[in-house]
Computed example of a mutant assay.
Amino acid sequence: MIDWNYLFKIGIALFAIVNAIGSVPVFISATDGWPDAARAHVARTIALTVFTVLTLSVFIGDRLLDFFGISVASFQVGGGILLLLIAISMMHAKQSGARQTEEEAQAAAEREAVAIVPLSIPLLAGPGAISSMIIAAERSGGFWGHLSLVAPIAVVCFLVWLILLLSAPIAHRLGTIGINVVTRLMGLILAAMAVEFMARGLGSLFPGLLS
């Protein structure tokens, strides 16, 4: 039976991690001077790329963990720490280095494969988003549980496409202050999710902590 409440929770967390609204200024800067048709094409490519990366994380992420000999509990703690760092950066209305380095920001200015790097990976489908989907897949269990996670991924990617498509009017209406406020709120939600991930992982690694 599909747990819609759980999927809704995953969708909210994923939307906070991806933070498409906070990436609007980067998108506008990377596509500065492009015609509307080119921007629309890039927005669609970004959404499809993010969907592909996150869906693959759901279905083969656990196998990658097995290959490297990493336990899910350890990944939950590590992923939670990473999400917390991203959340702290978001609450300061800054781009985390875990999402985009200075070199990747310069690559955006060069407009070479801008839809894939850095706008899709790692700016939107970064380590935090990938980590959260691998952890969610482990909790869902089984093929149908994995398949159900495609629904929140698809919804978030649709919102990514819509937000980037409307990036110019969104940036104009929200302004720098508005975008920073949204980014901080998303960071607060993400920080709470990160603490849950770490607590669950530490509870599995050290069962005595739960008693």
Score class of each variant (00 low, 15 high):
Leu149Phe: 02
Pro152Gln: 09
Met133Gly: 05
Val155Arg: 04
Phe206Ile: 14
Val150Leu: 06
Glu138Tyr: 13
Val182Ile: 15
Asn180Lys: 14
Ser140Ala: 10
Gly175Met: 09
Ile163Leu: 10
Leu202Tyr: 12
Gly175Glu: 11
Leu166Val: 03
Gly208Asn: 13
Arg139Trp: 03
Arg173Glu: 06
Ser167Cys: 04
Gly175His: 09
Gly175Asn: 12
Leu159Pro: 09
Gly187Arg: 09
Val160Ser: 01
Leu188Gly: 14
Leu165Glu: 09
Val156Ile: 10
Gly208Ser: 14
Glu138Ile: 02
Trp161His: 13
Phe197Arg: 09
Met198Lys: 12
Gly141Pro: 00
Ala171Asp: 14
Leu159Arg: 14
Ala192Gln: 11
Asn180Glu: 15
Leu202Arg: 07
Ile170Ser: 02
Ile153Gln: 07
Ala136Leu: 08
Leu185Pro: 07
Phe143Lys: 01
Val182Lys: 07
Ala151Asn: 01
Gly145Pro: 00
Ala137Thr: 03
Thr176Trp: 04
Phe158Pro: 04
Pro152Ser: 05
Pro169Met: 11
Pro152His: 05
Val195Ile: 15
Leu162Met: 11
Leu210Ala: 09
Gly142Cys: 00
Leu166Pro: 01
Ala171Gln: 13
Glu138Ala: 15
Val156Ser: 04
Leu147Thr: 06
Leu165Val: 05
Val150Cys: 05
Val181Gln: 07
Trp144Gln: 01
Ala194Phe: 10
Ile163Phe: 08
Glu138Thr: 10
Val182Cys: 14
Leu209Glu: 11
Ile189Arg: 09
Trp161Leu: 08
Leu190Ala: 12
Ser204Ile: 15
Leu190Trp: 09
Ala192Gly: 06
Ala137Val: 03
Gly208Met: 13
Gly141Leu: 00
Met133Leu: 14
Leu209Met: 13
Ala151Lys: 00
Leu159Ser: 13
Met198Ser: 13
Asn180Val: 04
Ile163Gln: 04
Asn180Pro: 03
Ala154Arg: 09
Leu166Glu: 13
Ile135Asp: 07
Gly203Pro: 05
Ile179Asn: 07
Met186Gly: 08
Arg200Phe: 07
Gly145Thr: 01
Ile135Glu: 10
Arg139Pro: 00
Ala191Val: 12
Gly203Asn: 13
Arg173Trp: 13
Ile163Glu: 04
Ile130Phe: 08
Gly178Tyr: 11
Ala136Cys: 03
Val160Tyr: 00
Ile177Lys: 14
Gly203Ser: 15
Leu159Val: 14
Ala151Tyr: 04
Ala199Asp: 10
Ile189Cys: 08
Ile134Cys: 07
Ser140Lys: 01
Gly141Tyr: 00
Ala151Glu: 00
Leu205Pro: 10
Val160Thr: 09
Phe197Asp: 10
Val182His: 02
Ser204Thr: 15
Gly187His: 11
Thr176Glu: 15
Gly201Pro: 03
Leu205His: 11
Ser132Lys: 10
Ser131His: 11
Leu147Ser: 05
Leu190Phe: 10
Val150Gln: 02
Trp144Ser: 03
Ile177Leu: 11
Met193Arg: 15
Val182Asn: 05
Ser148Gln: 03
Trp144Leu: 06
Gly201Ala: 06
Thr183Tyr: 09
Cys157Ala: 13
Ile170Met: 05
Val160Trp: 01
